[in-house]
Computed example of a mutant assay.
Amino acid sequence: MEKKQFFEDYRIGHIRHSPARTITETDIVVHAGHTGDFSPHHMDAEYAKHTPFERRIAHGTMVFAFGIGLAAQSANNPGAFSSGYDRIRFVRPVFIGDTLKSRITIGDLKTMADNPDFGEVIEQIDVVNQKNETVLTASHVLMVERR
Rank of each mutant, 00 (worst) to 15 (best):
A72N: 09
G36M: 11
V30G: 09
E54A: 13
F66Y: 05
G36P: 13
F90M: 00
M62W: 08
R92E: 00
M43H: 09
T35R: 15
F95Q: 08
L70R: 08
G33W: 04
H31F: 14
V30T: 14
R87V: 01
Y85C: 02
G36I: 12
N77Q: 05
L70P: 07
P52Y: 00
M62A: 08
T51E: 01
G97P: 05
V91N: 14
D86W: 01
F95E: 06
I68C: 03
Y85M: 04
A71K: 05
S83Q: 11
N77V: 01
A71H: 02
P78D: 02
V63S: 12
I68E: 00
V29T: 12
G84M: 04
G79W: 00
A48P: 12
N77T: 03
H34R: 13
Y85T: 02
H59E: 02
M43C: 08
G33Y: 04
E54I: 03
A71I: 00
G79K: 02
A72H: 09
D86S: 08
R92W: 00
R87L: 04
V63C: 08
R87T: 03
F38M: 12
H59N: 09
A65T: 04
A65G: 10
K101C: 10
E54M: 06
F90L: 00
R89N: 12
H31W: 13
P93Y: 00
P93D: 01
S82Y: 03
K101H: 10
R87D: 03
N76F: 03
I68Q: 03
Y85Q: 03
R89C: 12
P40R: 14
I68N: 02
D98S: 10
Y47H: 15
T61I: 07
A75K: 06
P52F: 00
T26K: 13
R56W: 02
Q73K: 13
A71E: 01
Y85S: 04
A75Q: 07
K49L: 14
R87I: 00
M62G: 09
K101M: 09
G36S: 14
I88W: 01
F53M: 14
I96Y: 02
R56H: 10
F53V: 15
I88S: 07
I88F: 01
G33F: 04
V91H: 11
I96A: 07
A72V: 05
G67R: 11
G36W: 07
P93L: 07
H59Y: 07
I88Q: 06
P93I: 00
T26E: 11
S74R: 03
Y47L: 09
F90Y: 00
I104V: 10
I96P: 01
D27Q: 15
A65D: 04
A45F: 12
R55F: 00
D27S: 15
S102D: 01
D37S: 13
I96L: 04
H59Q: 10
E54L: 08
S102L: 04
V63N: 10
F64K: 13
D86G: 05
A65W: 02
G97Y: 06
L70S: 07
P52H: 03
G84Y: 01
L70M: 06
G79D: 06
A45P: 14
K49H: 12
F81M: 08
H59S: 07
